[in-house]
Amino acid sequence: MIRFALPFVIFLLFLMEGTWFQIFVPPSPERDIVLVPRLVLVAVVLTSIYRGAGSGVLIGAGFGLLYDIVYTDLIGIYMFSMGFTAYLSSFTYMAVRTSYWWQFLIIIGAIFILEWLTYGLHYVIGYTDMLFEEFFILRLLPSWVLNGTVALLLLYPFQRFFQRLRELEDLQQR
C-alpha cells in the first residue's frame, strides 16, 4: 500500500489545481496577469530530488498525461514537459536533499523550464500568438511568485513525507 502514498498525495494536489484553486481564485477580467498553480510540478521536482530521476520522470510524465487528458484537449504537451522538467531537476545530491535553498532554486528553475516549454509548444501549434515579453511579464513572473511561495510552504512537509516514506519502505523490506 505504501507505494500508492506518493501518487495519492500528488493526485490531491492535482485536483486542487483544477477545482479548489479555480473556485477560490477565479480568473477575472480586471486582472491581466494569469495565475497558474503548479502544485503538481513542485511535488514532481521534489520527487525526482528525493527518489531519483527514474521515479521523478515516471511520476512527472504520468501526471502530465493525466493533466493533458482531464484539463486540456491536447495530449502530449504536459506529458513531455513534466517528464523533461523532472529529468532536468533530478539533483539527487545529499547537499541538495538537506538544503531548502537548493531545493527552492531548483524549483524556481523547473517552473521556468515548464512554463517556457508549454508556452513554446502552444506557440508552435498556433494556440497562442503571445510574444515572449508578454509571456514573461503576464505569466512567468506571476507564476514564479505564486509557485515559489507555494514551494516554500510545501518544502518542509514533503521532506518529512519522503523521510517517513523511506523509513516505512525499509521496514517493509526487512
Binding site: 480568473p27 494569469v34 498553480p37 486540456t72 484537449d73
Partner: peptide, 12 residues
C-alpha cells in the same frame, strides 16, 4: 473543474 493553465478556456 476549470483548465488551470490559461491557454484554453474550458470547464468540466
Amino acid at each position: 473543474h476549470r483548465t488551470p493553465d490559461g491557454w484554453t478556456e474550458m470547464i468540466g
